[in-house]
Amino acid sequence: MGVVASDEKSTTKISDKIIDGNFVNVANLDQIVIGRLMAQSLMGNPYGKNRARAGMEVELINHLGWSQRYTIGGVADAKSFIPNWLVILSKEQLEKLDPSQKDSEIAVKLKNPRDGAYVKSLIKQKNPNLNVYIWNEQAGYVNDMIGAVSFMTNLVNILVIIIVFVLVSIIIFINILQKKRQIGVLKSMGIDNKFVFRIYLSETMIYLAFSWIIGFLIFLVVHLYLLNYPMPTLIGDFHTVINWQTAALSIAALFGAAIAGTIIPAILAAKIKIVDVIRDNV
């Protein structure tokens, strides 16, 4: 109720994802459709190259020990963890295997997700025999998985920013140590501290520009490869996405880290005393 598949964002119609055979149809009720990972696991390795094919026979056994033989009518690849482990069969066959599946399920989409608990209690009041669940009570682990991935991604981002800060600081500092005498000579020629500071800031900007361009090009190559050959993982096939907002944020964060890493060494360079460095033959 309130759900129109064509209006939803990021939905997958499994019947459109058949890679072998056909989807379930009323003419062949003893045929099932299985997900790719399930098909591969039937051959011994869910991530192996071999999979069960359309036309093969399988036996389904439920938790009560009831079993039924079926023919694989088709194999689907939804590029995602849950659908690729599914077994899809007609409702009549499902009810044979699991009597509790005789009940219908109604999905209700709310305009405001925060109304979930309230709507649940309303439905229960009017229909005490109904089992009512909010979606994350049934599949809350999806949020947990997304949260875990986000946490790891953010952690990696923070580490990268710290690494950039430290690396830039070290590079600029070493550069200054090697150029100490030259800085002293330039100051004796009449350049001021701001000029020295600007030299190192410009150097950092150049490193930043080149490293971002090279990094983006490497990402682009990996991205195009993964789009064509996604990496299979436990939770589904993985590929990168280009999000320009994220890219802009990453430039800003790296820019900030690089500038921060440059400030202290550049200030030290600007404060070099001329008389201390120009006398020695380095």
């Binding site: 005498r181 030259q182 000579v185 330039l186 100051k187 004796s188 020629m189 009449g190 350049i191 001021d192 501290n193 120009i278 006398r279 020695d280 033959n281």
Partner: peptide, 24 residues
């Protein structure tokens, strides 16, 4: 002050050093 010293070194005095101190 510092800016006056910088201006002095820029315009009023030129140095010739023992070790040449050229920009390599």
């Amino acid at each position: 002050g510092e800016s006056e010293k910088v201006n002095f070194r820029l315009r009023s005095v030129a140095f010739i050093f023992q070790f040449f101190n050229l920009i390599e």
